[in-house]
């Protein structure tokens, strides 16, 4: 790249914004090891005394252990349900090109645009009607529905890449839909399945408003996202709050550090399909 005035400006701008992104994260991490007094008096300095016990206090106050189990359970079941629904649908849509198939695709495309929040209150009513208000089970059923439009559209795209010749030869061998799906389509569309899994797991893990209003704040069912803000009180110990936040964000960052390329691909794929 040739250095130019524009290039210099871009460099300055891009690093200023990076600094703006990093500063709150740095502040969070150093606060996690401080007392309130130190947070207030020396906000950006490294802790004078490293208060590791903030982490223990946060863990106990928000009952994060149980919350983590709940989050894992809900996200885990929801992703299985999502794939069980979306994979066969995508297979069918990838193999059909008629008015009906286009209408179904159109339905999902429209559904992708409307954020689930639009129907938050009627969804609460639905949970009550089904007798599942205040349970984890409702989220396990509901989250897949909110994930379906994008999952189906993405998987269909990946399954369209299966070479027709391969399908024909497998069909000549007498393979039915089940064999075709499990032996031909899913293996070839595996990068798509991986992307959808990562993308939706992250979405489920991070879901907040529906978990708060439907699953609720009872310690035995609440998720991490709901549990953590309960630390906030009139006289909040900001160090403990920061420590809890670090603990709650950590699983996602660990996952990201292990498979950052994959994750970046998955999340960008999710938005590229508009």
């Amino acid at each position: 790249m040739r250095k130019s005035k524009g290039g210099l400006l871009a460099t300055v701008l891009s690093w200023s914004y990076a600094l703006l992104l990093a500063a709150p994260l740095y502040y969070l991490v150093v606060s996690a090891l401080k007392s309130n007094i130190e947070i207030f008096t020396r906000p950006f300095a490294l802790p004078a005394q490293w208060l590791w016990e903030n982490f223990g206090t946060a863990w106990r106050t928000a009952d994060l252990g149980r919350a983590l189990v709940n989050s894992v359970l809900i996200s885990g079941v929801a992703i299985v349900v999502t794939l069980c629904l979306a994979v066969p649908a995508a297979y069918a849509l990838a193999r059909t090109d008629n008015r009906l198939a286009r209408m179904i695709t159109g339905t999902f495309s429209a559904g992708f645009l409307i954020p689930p929040f639009a129907a938050l209150i009627p969804t609460v009513v639905l949970a009550i009607e089904l007798g599942l208000f205040g349970t984890r089970e409702f989220q396990m059923l509901f989250l897949p529905a909110s994930a379906l439009p994008l999952s189906v559209l993405l998987l269909t795209q990946f399954m369209r890449t299966v070479p027709p010749a391969l399908v024909e030869s497998a069909a000549l061998d007498g393979a039915g839909h089940w064999r075709l799906l499990t032996r031909v389509f899913v293996p070839i569309a595996r990068p798509g399945v991986v992307s959808v899994t990562i993308l939706q797991l992250l979405t489920f893990w991070n879901e907040y408003l529906f978990s708060l209003t439907i699953t609720g704040t009872a310690p035995d069912v609440r998720t991490v996202q709901v549990a953590l803000p309960t630390i906030v009180a009139d006289a909040t110990n900001l160090g403990v709050l920061a420590a809890g936040t670090v603990l709650a964000v950590l699983p996602v960052y660990v996952a990201y550090s292990i498979m950052n390329r994959r994750m970046q691909e998955a999340l960008t794929a999710g938005a590229v399909k508009g």
Binding site: Y91, R95, T96, L100, P122, L141
Partner: peptide, 24 residues
């Protein structure tokens, strides 16, 4: 005929997404 395989996901989507939106 293979489009039958989209029915479960459509039903799911109708119950949990379209239904609440209409109920609004």
């Amino acid at each position: 005929r293979v489009l039958w395989l989209t029915v479960p996901s459509l039903v799911w989507f109708a119950v949990f997404s379209v239904g609440p939106l209409a109920a609004m």
